[in-house]
Write a protein that binds this DNA or RNA. Structure first.
Lengths: 334, 334
DNA sequence: TCCTGGCACTCGTGAAGTCAGAGTGCCAAG
DNA sequence: CTTGGCACTCTGACTTCACGAGTGCCAGGA
């Protein structure tokens, strides 16, 4: 049904349309790409591709443009991922290696991605729950107030202030450190509940009340509803593609302000082995129906770019992959 | 030179233009506002106002619009600040009071401001250097590695990891806490250098090497170049006023991505007693020449809104003032 | 001295009409 | 299955035109 030439025609349409932003007609297509067939033949193929829903034309006498379904096919079967030049690789590496701490890594990644792809870049901070505990410090702020400081292997530091119902002594705090520390060290926070479940029973009775308070905070705040953070950049690039958005940028900008939405886009892609692409309508978020997302996990978090469906998928996929890998390596090595 | 009626005409022009976004002509102006004079008279006044540079017309047969200079006069002398209704005040207060921690306060403020004003809102986190130290904790992560955790009275928690050239013992760390703690507690970080300058001399000789390392980190990272943070929101509102921007939103969005630029806009307004307004060309930042900024300090930081010069200054000023006051109170009381 | 009505003039806006070009679909022939 | 030919469609750019809002100026009146 879809023989090789038809696929080739689809690829040509996508590539031309992406680079020129103009509906592509049979004639220009036939001559620009060396298809070796006449425009009339291309027209027949186009008619079939349209019947199958891979392309449309905005109006009768205009060229064809890909549909979401067409882009999907292109991404899945037609685009060959561009390898980055070694110069590019080196540039990425050296740019990221200059980072001094986690915040810096994240910000540099955002900047890098948005510059490489000319799109909006989104980078999730390493998720707490998927990171390992390197250190849990309990600071005795006041007789009834503790500060928990959690440091993970990905360099993220998180703190919570904890108000206790009763008073605790320095000695209690010291003991708390001793019971929590060894059980959490080197563990993923996801596994913390299991590691801590027998704690109240094992601890000396005098310590139990305060211990259960601390335990519940650790579990609820750090494990069950950990605060996920996200950095975003390159929104100005949206104006670059303003023509690609049906009405205005408004709904897109609004969606980008919703952390939750972004997390959904980026955070659910945990898989650090392949790049995931969501195209237009595939996107569940209202307001991002005219955008595509290219995302990948880097280990304890995810990152990606967002832009109009008319984007350079091949290029963006390879950029996202490259950055994700470097970031993953960087954080794993730190 | 500018008698009362001419000022009244200017006010009318500004108000009409702000609300309708259409150049205002002599006739509609004369009848809509009860000026009690004929359109011809208004025309004469307009001619004079134009000669003085307060208004222009885009082309010969169009009405007048205010210039930056006109807005400036309007803001300085003509706009009477709207008092917020008590319902609005209550709404602001209850919205902000629901915040659970500093991050929440800042995010809620941004959201509140952008919704109240329909503009882009910017809120600076309480500046470290202008906050008081509530607690400085030194955590012994590893033999040659310390974690400094600083907690301020405005609820901000900042941490730095510190690699030492040599090894330190638990006991050393304990002593460090004792020398730093009392000297910093209740002090503003700005004053820290003075409070700490005699420290190396006063300390026991064995502690000096590590103490000077810690000291230099405290001074450089927390005092000299403290990491200022900023939250921003409501960028989608820019599209609401897209017509007001000469070409595209691009330069504005680009400027908004530069933390440094925003800090310059918001951070330099420390004065928590009055609202500062920068109009169009007054703005030093290239790319924000077509925008106005309404900002105010709230104590240890600043906040404000940014929008097209054609904005409701009176309304925005009162919103910014109200939010700044509530935030200031909230953080001072916390 | 200042206000007012009148009047000619300017100029942008929007409607309507025209036209060329790109592109299509279909058909019959190779 | 491919190809050239041909009639058809539709957009976008361009022009023209009339309208009307708005101005500037002037001369007369308070």
């Amino acid at each position: 049904m879809l023989d090789d030439r038809k696929l080739e025609v689809l690829r040509a349409i996508v590539e031309d349309f992406v680079s020129t932003n103009e509906p592509v007609g049979s004639k220009t297509l036939a001559e620009r790409h060396g298809l070796g067939v006449s425009p009339a033949t291309v027209r027949n193929d186009m008619a079939l591709l349209e019947e199958e829903g891979f392309i449309t034309h905005p109006h009768t006498s205009a060229g064809r443009i890909p549909t979401d379904k067409g882009y999907r096919l292109f991404v899945d079967r037609l685009s060959q991922v561009k390898a980055l030049s070694s110069a590019e690789k080196r540039a990425i590496q050296s740019f990221l290696e200059g980072a001094v701490d986690l915040d810096d890594v994240v910000h540099r990644s955002v900047r890098l991605l948005s510059q490489l792809t000319q799109q909006v870049a989104v980078v999730q901070y390493p998720s707490l729950s998927r990171s390992e505990v390197r250190h849990l410090e309990i600071v005795h702020l006041a007789p009834n107030r503790l500060l928990l400081v959690l440091i993970t292997d990905s360099g993220r530091v998180e703190q919570r202030v904890l108000e206790l119902p009763g008073l605790v002594s320095d000695d209690d705090v010291h003991q708390l450190r001793n019971v929590f520390g060894p059980r959490l060290h080197g563990r993923k926070l996801l596994d913390a509940p299991k590691a801590l479940e027998d704690l109240p029973d094992a601890a000396p009775p005098s310590l139990r009340p305060v211990l259960t308070s601390v335990l519940s905070v650790v579990l609820s705040a750090l494990v069950e509803k950990p605060e996920e953070r996200i950095a975003i950049g390159g929104t100005a690039n949206l104006t670059r593609h303003a023509l690609d958005f049906p009405q205005t940028l408004r709904p897109v900008l609004e969606a980008l302000e919703e952390q939750v939405v972004l997390l959904k886009l980026i955070g659910e892609v945990n898989d650090p082995t392949t790049v995931h692409v969501k195209i237009g309508e595939e996107n569940s978020v209202e307001g991002l129906r005219s955008t595509s997302v290219v995302a990948m996990g880097y280990g304890p978090g995810g990152l990606g770019v967002l832009g109009p469906t008319r984007m350079d998928y091949a290029g963006n996929i390879s950029s996202v992959r490259a950055v994700a890998r470097y970031v993953g390596d960087l954080l794993a090595g730190a």
